[in-house]
Simulated scan of single mutants.
Amino acid sequence: MKHMILAGVALFALSTTNAANAQDVTLNLSNEYSATSIHGVGDARFASLVSEKSGGSVEVIVHYGGALGYKSADHFDAVGEGALEIADTYGGALGGIDPLFLISSLPFFVTTVEEAKMLYEVSEPEFQRVFEENNQILLYASPWPPSGIWSQDAISSTDALAGLKIRTYDKNGTTAFNEMGAAAVRLSWADVVPSISTGAIDAVLTSAEGGVSGSFWEHFDTFTEIYNYAIPLNFVHMSKDVFDGLNDDQQAAILEAAAETRDLNWASVPDRLANTYAQLDENNVSVVTSEDDAYRTALQAAGEAALNDWLETAGERGRVLIDAFNSAKAQ
């Protein structure tokens, strides 16, 4: 009912705005993550740029921490149905919509931000098509810093993973860590801290930054780097009906702000990493990097299992994107 009321308010506001030649529009943007996360900061930047470029005629109000009642898994339908104007959504939550959204979180498939951007660029037309088919516009996508494991003790060997109750953020991670003998469970971000507090999980797969935004040092002492496990993406998408209801200048302002935010988000990762590790040090979090070659080999084998599982689901479309990425990487 809450979502229906929000939808009615949003559509009434938009229809009223259209009657006034699409002036002074207010758009809501939902993000499950905190205002201090890399995507939260990006959303604030996007909102500021939209206001600036539209001469103040478009205001984007960002709602952090799932404040509107939506988790990432809810965003796709909410935006497509017009209940929500814009959302910033973790790609893994869209894997049930289309398995191609899981490509950025394939374990150990990309190991640098440059490779992650290359993978996104070859995949972007497919992502755009999926959004377009569901009455939405993909404004931009940008990365999280590399994922690792937050826990009480270092998870730097295959033995440490055995039976570990670890939160993963999508199907790829669940497949890979269960392959390693862990007891992996996929959880939305909003459910992570409650699950830590109740002892439902012992560890969390996320970036160092994700843990900082959630003050994980209140629960864990260690962040274990696992060879740049993955550099997953968030997608910012908008209702096509809402976008079409704007005038040409307002549409241009949104698209220009999106492109600028995308580029700034990608470029910000190195500085974000440096700041994050400084915060880990300030809060007495140990950063561990395993030197166990057997562990690395086992993790990569688990990543291969996740890739094969993904390819079975994604089919020829997935294989085409993998081949395109490998070709681009080889150049």
Rank of each mutant, 00 (worst) to 15 (best):
K2S: 14
K2E: 12
G8T: 05
A10K: 05
L11A: 10
A13C: 08
A13Q: 13
T16Y: 13
T16I: 12
D24F: 09
D24H: 14
L27Y: 08
N28R: 15
N31I: 15
E32W: 00
E32F: 02
T36F: 06
T36Y: 08
T36S: 15
H39D: 10
G40T: 03
V41R: 14
A44M: 10
F46I: 02
A47N: 01
A47Q: 00
V50C: 08
S57W: 03
V60K: 06
H63M: 05
G65F: 02
G65I: 05
G66W: 02
G66K: 07
G66M: 12
Y70E: 05
F76R: 01
E81F: 03
E81I: 01
G82L: 08
E85F: 03
T89C: 14
Y90A: 09
A93N: 00
D98R: 02
P99Q: 10
L100G: 05
F101I: 03
I103L: 12
S105K: 04
L106W: 02
P107M: 07
P107E: 04
V113W: 05
E115D: 15
E115F: 02
A116I: 01
K117F: 09
V122Y: 06
F131C: 02
E133A: 11
N134W: 05
Q136A: 00
P143D: 10
P145G: 12
P145D: 09
S147L: 14
G148I: 00
G148D: 11
S157E: 04
D159N: 14
D159R: 06
L161Y: 03
G163M: 11
I166M: 01
R167F: 01
D170Y: 09
G173N: 10
N178F: 04
M180T: 08
A183W: 01
A183M: 10
R186G: 10
W189N: 09
A190I: 13
V192N: 12
V192M: 12
P194K: 04
S197I: 11
S197N: 11
L205W: 01
S207G: 12
E209W: 09
G210D: 13
G210A: 10
G210S: 13
S213M: 14
F216E: 07
W217C: 07
W217Y: 12
H219G: 07
F220T: 09
D221I: 04
T222E: 00
T222D: 00
E225T: 06
I226V: 15
Y229T: 06
N234P: 05
S239M: 03
Q250E: 09
L255F: 00
L264I: 12
V269L: 14
D271I: 03
N275V: 04
T276A: 13
T276D: 11
A278D: 13
E282A: 15
N283Y: 11
N284S: 15
N284K: 13
V287F: 07
V288K: 06
S290R: 03
D293L: 11
A298P: 02
Q300A: 05
E304I: 01
N308R: 08
L311M: 12
A314G: 03
G315C: 05
R317A: 15
R317E: 15
R317W: 11
V320T: 14
A328T: 09
A328C: 02
K329C: 06
A330P: 00
